[in-house]
């Protein structure tokens, strides 16, 4: 939309920048893949990919790393949305770890994430031989993500070396990699959480219903409201109670807190975001499990 002649609104600038990145990767890499986590950022990224290549199809597959602990609502949504969008969806589950009973209750969040997310992701990327993987991470989310390039180089083991990143100037991205090396690409680098919701609102993008407020059974645990599912393990003294709440981020249900909110429409969510006092990552238990935990996970190969 034109704010004034020949001037793009901030949201349109961000959209244009993201589409440029998506096309650049599609043109320069042999086997790109888009990590699709089913959340709001992935929903926006998918819509941008559709726009970038319209009227053609999205020229790369989507990859979902399923830990087996995702919200059940996410999986149904994922399958339907991908089918409707006409994109190829590939799902990877680290079956060995899942069969071994990996869960955050017994392993702790650090080791659980390492197996079900980081290792699973590395396995999936290696199995697919992907040389570029899009992720929906935003610099605004967390302070080590604020340090990411748009094209983030990963070595043969998927590791990030934050102290030795390639200089990245203008919109000239260096995508050259050797055998086994890859680039993680972040087309939403410059978007904020509010931008995401403004865009979802403007484009009327469908998102997982968990983002909308409804009464759900939760338990209060270490300052978080944890939603209760059939496989949620209750700690001594915990009693599920109904709370009108919604998810601000989506992940594995045992480690994702919900927030008390009555925002049950896109308009209400946008209004809530404009007044937000807490960052979205407060509801991610795993971001607080050790000092510099996100940086550590990223170094090891996590997004």
């Amino acid at each position: 939309m034109l704010v004034e002649p020949l001037r793009l609104s901030t949201l349109d600038q961000l959209e244009a920048e993201s589409i440029h990145i998506l096309r650049e990767v599609a043109a320069e890499f042999e086997r790109p893949v888009m990590l699709y986590s089913v959340g709001k950022d992935s929903s926006v990224m998918l819509r941008l990919a559709q726009k970038a290549f319209a009227p053609g199809r999205v020229p790369f597959p989507l990859l979902h790393v399923d830990t087996g602990l995702k919200f059940p609502e996410m999986l149904a949504f994922r399958d339907r949305v991908c089918a409707e969008a006409g994109v190829e969806l590939r799902v990877y589950r680290h079956e060995e770890a899942i069969a071994g009973g990996a869960n955050p209750y017994d392993l702790g969040t650090v080791r659980c994430c390492a197996q079900l997310k980081t290792q699973a992701l590395l396995n999936a990327l290696a199995a697919g031989g992907y040389d570029a993987a899009f992720g929906g991470a935003r610099r605004e989310e967390e302070r080590s993500r604020a340090k990411e390039r748009v094209y983030s180089f990963r070595d043969r083991f998927g590791q990030w070396d934050p102290r030795n990143q390639r200089p990245e100037l203008w919109n000239l991205y260096n995508g050259r990699v050797g055998q086994g090396e890859s680039i993680r690409v972040f087309p939403l680098s410059n978007w904020t959480e509010l931008d995401i919701w403004l865009y979802i609102h403007r484009e009327q993008i469908e998102v997982v219903p968990l983002y909308f407020a409804a009464e759900r059974p939760v338990v209060r645990r270490a300052g978080q409201l944890i939603p209760v599912y059939a496989d949620t393990r209750l700690l001594p003294g915990e009693q599920p109670e109904p709370v009108v709440c919604r998810c601000r981020t989506l992940g594995c249900h045992p480690c994702t807190g919900v927030v008390e909110s009555t925002a049950d429409t896109l308009e209400a969510i946008v209004a809530e975001m404009m007044a937000a006092k807490q960052s979205e990552r407060t509801t991610r238990v795993i971001d607080h499990d050790q000092d510099a935990s996100m940086e550590q996970k990223k170094r090891e190969g996590y997004f």
């Binding site: 605004e140 993500r145 604020a146 934050p162 102290r163 000092d291 510099a292």
Partner: peptide, 22 residues
């Protein structure tokens, strides 16, 4: 401490790489 996002930066109290803030 707000902007120095890397552990090494906080330890050495210098900025090593660009941090983007909104």
């Amino acid at each position: 401490l707000v902007t120095d996002g890397l552990k090494a930066e906080r330890e050495q109290r210098i900025t090593i790489d660009v941090a983007y803030r909104h």
